[in-house]
Amino acid sequence: MDFDQADAVNQAIRQLSLRHRARTAALLAPLGLHPGQEVLLLELARTGPMIQAQLSDALGIEPPSVTLMTRKLEASGHISRTPAPADKRASIVELTDSGKALAERVKQMWCALAEETVAGLPARTVAELPGVLKTLAGNVDTKRSR
């Protein structure tokens, strides 16, 4: 690949990432959330209660970041944290009724964001997009770990 093509690919990915995060932040703000908190809520809605360390692994987020997010979401009444029976140092995190309702609103926002993002693309391209993006992410992860 020559520099011009490499630059075009890298700039396109960078711009998409920046713009998607900014749009996410704009859509989350009326819900009282910040980027990153929505994926935590969605993960708990998908899987149910889990230990905070497992949540960190599932989200691919460092444990201190998950701790900060869970504290903020707990303070706002959207999640609860209780000591794990087998390990009192570990916390089990679960959605409250408020958190479950908020997760439903986040799901609606998430659908709207995806529809905005892929507007104008053929259905076949949209269907292939998650696989392509996972391959790109995997390629970057593979190279980084070497």
Rank of each mutant, 00 (worst) to 15 (best):
V39A: 10
C111L: 09
H78Y: 11
R14D: 08
L27A: 12
D141W: 05
T125Q: 10
K107W: 03
V9S: 02
D87G: 06
G120W: 01
E116W: 05
I61N: 08
E104K: 12
A137P: 00
L41V: 04
M69H: 04
L28P: 09
L31E: 11
E115S: 06
V66Y: 05
A127G: 01
R14Y: 15
T70H: 06
K143V: 11
R146C: 05
R81Q: 12
A58H: 15
T70K: 11
H34C: 11
G131S: 06
K100M: 03
D57L: 13
L59A: 10
N10K: 09
W110Y: 09
L27H: 06
V126P: 07
A127I: 04
H78N: 09
T96M: 01
S98Y: 08
E116P: 08
M50H: 08
L133D: 04
K100Q: 09
C111V: 12
Q52K: 15
R14M: 12
A26W: 01
E38K: 08
D4N: 11
G32M: 15
E104Q: 12
R21M: 07
K134D: 10
A84R: 00
A22P: 02
V106G: 02
T24E: 12
P85N: 04
G48M: 05
Q15T: 11
T135M: 14
E38Y: 00
A29D: 07
S80L: 12
D57H: 13
A53S: 14
A12Q: 02
I51Q: 15
A90D: 12
E74Y: 02
L18R: 14
L59S: 08
L129R: 14
A58S: 14
D97H: 07
T135L: 15
A137K: 11
K72Q: 15
V93D: 11
G32K: 13
L121P: 03
V132C: 13
V9H: 11
P30C: 14
T96H: 03
A58M: 06
A119N: 08
L27N: 05
E62F: 10
I51D: 11
L16S: 10
R89Q: 15
R105W: 00
E94C: 09
A29P: 00
G60S: 00
V132K: 15
P49G: 04
